[in-house]
Amino acid sequence: MIIEKQWHQVKNVLQEVLDNAFSIDKNATTEFDSLLSIDEIDALGYARNFPHLTCVMCSIEDGELLNFSKGKSRLDHDFKKLDVGMALLPATCYKVYLGLMNSSIEAPYIESCIARCFRHEDKALDNYRAFNFTMKEYVYLGEGESAQAHLDRGYERISALLDQLGITVSCELANDPFFDTSSSVARLSTLTPTKREIVFQGHAVSSLNYHRNYFGEKFNITHGSGFIHTSCVAFGLERWIAMFEEHFGDAAKTLAALATIH
């Protein structure tokens, strides 16, 4: 999705509105890069659960460089001689957990973060769905009960915000699109759903995710005597802009509506 002119301003104002809704100081957000090492994507288990969505960054093999410089080779669908150097970030919150690996937090807290994310979507692309997008997240790290409370508060804040804007949405249970639905992680997700989505006219624009102590245990992140529990409220900013465009019609009307939020 190309964000042009005033819509770029909408994107910036939207971030400020969301920070205010979640009581986050405007200078407290961390912006992450979009790269993961091969070891990091492997440690996350993302390619195991979602190989169809995984994106990697490749370079042309050294032995092929001369052929390209002489015009004998070119990039096309048949060219396979590539070196996989890095993976591309599929979700912003992964950077938070990787950064805390083998550590202990002194007290529960909420991390505000944003990054450009990439997924090799297997569904039709449109204004809502793209291979790359901006994901802003509010990640809670601490105890189980409070992790779930963070999501409940997040839902209330999103609902209040959209009510003020006059936008009608629904909240629906959702499951991540596991490639192998018979895997243990996929089965657990189906048996005890931990993801809800805020849906506008059939399009998910935000998600509320409870990870239990999955990332705490996987990356040895502790609080007190146990592994931390985590949850996150995530916003696809381009999806919100697409929603605003459908609802308000243009950027100027959207900015005027956002200015009324209190």
Rank of each mutant, 00 (worst) to 15 (best):
D163V: 11
D163C: 10
D163Y: 13
Q164T: 09
Q164D: 08
L165R: 06
G166K: 11
I167Q: 07
T168W: 07
V169Y: 09
S170W: 14
S170V: 15
S170R: 12
S170Y: 10
C171L: 14
E172Q: 08
E172I: 04
A174S: 14
N175E: 08
N175L: 12
D176R: 00
D176W: 00
D176N: 10
P177I: 01
P177A: 05
F178K: 04
F178Y: 15
F178Q: 00
F178I: 00
F179D: 10
D180L: 07
T181K: 15
T181Y: 06
S182D: 15
S182V: 14
S182M: 11
S182Y: 12
S182T: 15
S183W: 04
S184G: 11
S184C: 09
V185E: 11
R187F: 07
L188T: 11
L188D: 14
L188A: 15
L188N: 15
S189V: 06
T190G: 02
L191D: 14
L191P: 08
T192I: 14
T192P: 03
T192K: 09
P193V: 05
P193H: 07
T194Q: 15
T194N: 12
T194M: 13
T194F: 06
R196T: 07
E197Y: 00
I198V: 15
I198P: 00
I198M: 11
V199C: 10
V199Q: 09
V199M: 01
V199I: 15
F200N: 05
H203Q: 14
H203E: 14
H203V: 12
A204V: 04
A204E: 01
V205S: 02
V205M: 00
S207V: 02
L208D: 04
L208S: 00
L208F: 10
H211M: 08
H211C: 09
R212W: 07
R212Y: 10
R212P: 02
N213M: 10
N213S: 12
N213F: 02
Y214A: 11
Y214E: 08
F215I: 04
F215V: 03
G216K: 01
G216Q: 01
E217W: 05
F219G: 07
N220E: 04
I221V: 13
T222S: 13
T222F: 02
T222I: 06
H223V: 12
H223I: 13
G224Q: 09
G224P: 07
S225G: 10
G226P: 01
G226M: 09
F227L: 07
